[in-house]
């Protein structure tokens, strides 16, 4: 049986990304910051737990979780940080200022859930 040679690969070359290699959120995604209470080192301030906001920028490249880095992890599994914007009115019930005033912060991927 003869096969005609093709100038194109027979299968499309689909690249599969490793876990964590690509950010799971993009600018514009609405997110909620997690509410867990770590014992020991954390880098998500208490005042922001459970607050909702919007991703404004993906921080690249992926990096080590700084909460684990605090215990000596200098390398290993990397995920993305995301700069998120949260209206100050949403954080503080009695906020004095403009409804457009916002808090911007980098949050690690493991602390964010899509809403």
């Amino acid at each position: 049986m003869t096969q005609e040679r093709s100038s194109q690969p027979r299968k499309s070359a689909t690249v599969v990304f490793a876990w964590g290699e690509r950010p799971i959120f993009q600018a514009g995604d609405r997110i909620r910051i997690g509410t867990r209470t770590p014992i020991g080192h954390y880098r998500v301030p208490t005042y922001l737990r459970g607050k909702q906001g919007v991703v404004v920028q993906v921080i690249a490249p992926a990096a080590v979780d700084n909460e684990e880095e605090g215990y000596g992890r200098n390398a290993g599994k990397r995920l993305h940080y995301y700069r998120v914007a949260i209206p100050l009115e949403e954080i503080w019930p009695d906020y004095v200022g403009s409804p457009r005033d916002g808090l911007y912060i980098e949050i690690y991927e493991t602390w964010l859930e899509r809403i």
């Binding site: 020991g40 080192h41 880095e69 605090g70 215990y71 000596g72 200098n74």
Partner: peptide, 14 residues
């Protein structure tokens, strides 16, 4: 040197 990284320092202060 990563003898004490910056995050370890923060954790140590806490």
């Amino acid at each position: 040197h990563k003898i004490i990284n910056t995050e370890e320092k923060r954790c140590g202060v806490e």
